[in-house]
Design a protein around this nucleic acid. Structure first.
Lengths: 244, 244
DNA sequence: CGCCAAGTTGACAAGTCTCAATGTAAGTGG
DNA sequence: CCACTTACATTGAGACTTGTCAACTTGGCG
């Protein structure tokens, strides 16, 4: 049921539902909705989980479901050729996965670590959006912000050197982590494999590894574990990434 | 009123209105709407023009207007630093410029050549969208396709070599040109300066120029003029770009 | 404890960037 | 109509970053 195999839809989860419903209510996306809208949306959501490395959506598969990430980390990628993929983004708690328009998904996605998700049929969401203007607004805002993120990523790949790209990504992850409510000073959580981070940055794995080495050697960061990165000199990272 | 100077809002145009209203009606975006919706939208649109190199929208300026491109070519870019910009896309007839959500524009845009535009106040469009489900649908589809384009661009910058990037871009331009109704076999229109195309491709100008040279020398393309590119071996370009 | 996946490091090749010169087309004024 | 100017495109030489291939190390997990 887990693994990187063909296709396994996220597992339905019967137990511990209450616990996760609590985590649901505090999501910014839902908090932005009016009471009645929120109730309708929450009622329509189905809680489920995805194991580590489990594929959640398949590029070009029929885009039947939309997923709200409650906890965990998800990686999105595009297939360019038989063995040539490009990681296009990472999604965390509060991010939305899927599309509301178009027959097919625009990218594939898999869980980087075990995830808790909330699923809804796309048609159901479209119905709800038709009746609730504030939900429409929230959904439109979500796509717009996805677009903005893609544009930032794009300008990173187009203009920055290897060191600058990693600096930029680390600051992005830290910023998003803080937006999720994590305290300042907590090491940045970088749960994906180096290979995938390298692809996201448009680099080869050894190049990325060297950049990590340099930043470590210069005391800009330290890596208590592969997935936890402590920032010591934020100003250096900001200078590298070109502020912004 | 033209030029690359600070800011000059697109000029209102009194004459030749009828001519351009005709060009309006055939735009896919409008054709997709129901009769009554289309009438309301067309009525709310104001025709205007932008001279060559005239800046149309400013990143981070208040996003008051939305523009529909009737004719011409527009370039969108992000400002990374004082003198460091990244071209994020090119827009042609039928494309939409601006944003419906968020206070500010997400990018700057200027006319690559003299353009004919149709402008509408953002608030006006929002009102119309609230009343017309099919307009909502069309607008949502527009953002989604912008997002898809950004993702494709992103995977190009992340994974392809210089030659592959140009091949990929030429095919993209040709495809969009054909979608605009231009006959097959007509040279691909590449109206932007080499500098801007290079930025779009994440390359330096001399590198791009060398790639053009190679493709010309190998007989894959020829360049009757700087802005018109004839494709002789489409299969070579497709192989380079990784099909798709 | 040993295995396997993942990450790091080294040596070298290749592609791209940088700086600079040259070429070419469009625009301007005599 | 031509010389001049300017902007843009092309080409060349050398430096430098990044990619490639391979060995080695580390860390998680049975």
């Amino acid at each position: 049921m887990s693994g990187t195999g063909p296709y396994c839809p996220p597992a339905w989860d019967a137990g511990a539902g209450a616990l996760r419903r609590d985590r649901l209510a505090t999501l910014p996306f839902l908090k932005a909705l009016q009471g009645t809208t929120r109730a309708a949306v929450v009622k329509a959501l189905t809680l489920c989980t995805a194991e580590k490395h489990e594929q959640i959506i398949h590029e070009r598969a029929s885009a039947d479901s939309v997923y709200l990430i409650i906890d965990g980390a998800v990686m999105a990628w595009k297939q360019r050729g038989p063995s040539d993929t490009q990681v296009t983004g990472f999604l965390f708690r509060g991010d939305l996965l899927g599309t509301l328009i178009g027959e097919r998904y625009l990218y594939s996605a898999r869980a980087v670590v075990a995830c808790q998700l909330a699923q809804m049929a796309r048609t159901r969401l479209a119905e709800l959006a038709d009746r609730h203007p504030d939900l429409r607004h929230a959904l439109y805002g979500q796509v717009t912000s996805d677009f903005a993120l893609a544009q930032d990523h794009l300008s990173m790949l187009g203009a920055l050197s290897a060191d600058e790209r990693l600096a930029s990504a680390l600051l992005q992850f830290e910023r998003r982590q803080r937006a999720r409510g994590v305290a300042e000073g907590v090491p940045v959580w970088v749960p994906m494999r180096r290979t995938d981070l390298a692809s996201y940055l448009g680099l080869e794995l050894p190049t990325l590894s060297r950049v990590f080495g340099r930043l470590r050697r210069d005391g800009v960061i330290s890596t208590p574990s592969t997935t936890d990165i402590k920032i010591h000199e934020r100003d250096t990272l900001m200078r590298l990434s070109g502020d912004a």
